[in-house]
Amino acid sequence: MTIATPSGVTVAELPPTTRISLRIADPAAAGLALPTAIGARSAEGARTALCLGPDEWLIEAPEADRAAVLATVAGIAAPHSAVEVSDREITYALEGPAVLDLLATGCPRDLARMPVGSGARTVFDTAQVVLTRETQVRFHLTVWRSFAPHVRALLDIAGRELAADLDRNWLHG
């Protein structure tokens, strides 16, 4: 098994998106087809809902849908909390064959076992992050805005380390 491939991985900051933290005791009452397993994500067009906790969902939608999605959650009749957090965090897209190695420089979870299309809140270095697995080799990492430069700096250092491809320097280099 190659630990790190030289082609490595790319890190790109994604443009802003609409994010809503939706909290509700009974997800069925929301009328939004919310997934109920922690880590599961549902999609309806460009809108996604990621279950982060037993009563917590991260709703994401394109900026253009902001008003519509805010109106949708505001229309939930059952007791709930909907708080817009679009500006709270920054999302990076990490992509490439070495993406698991890149994330393993800071995240203690066994991400190889994370199914495509699912996500989780976890940590990277000392920062809390939300990771979603978009494809086998693409993750989105969402981190609070003020921690983003730190996480980005670490990802860049790790990216250079992967590019140096030390693990091919077999005997005597």
């Binding site: 933290s21 909290r23 005791a25 009563d55 007791p79 709930h80 909390s81 708080v83 817009e84 957090v85 679009s86 500006d87 709270r88 965090e89 609070w144 805005r145 003020s146």
Partner: peptide, 12 residues
């Protein structure tokens, strides 16, 4: 209690 808490420190 039917109440939820959301950190918005960095939203604003």
């Amino acid at each position: 209690l039917q109440v939820w808490l959301t950190s918005t420190t960095e939203q604003w």
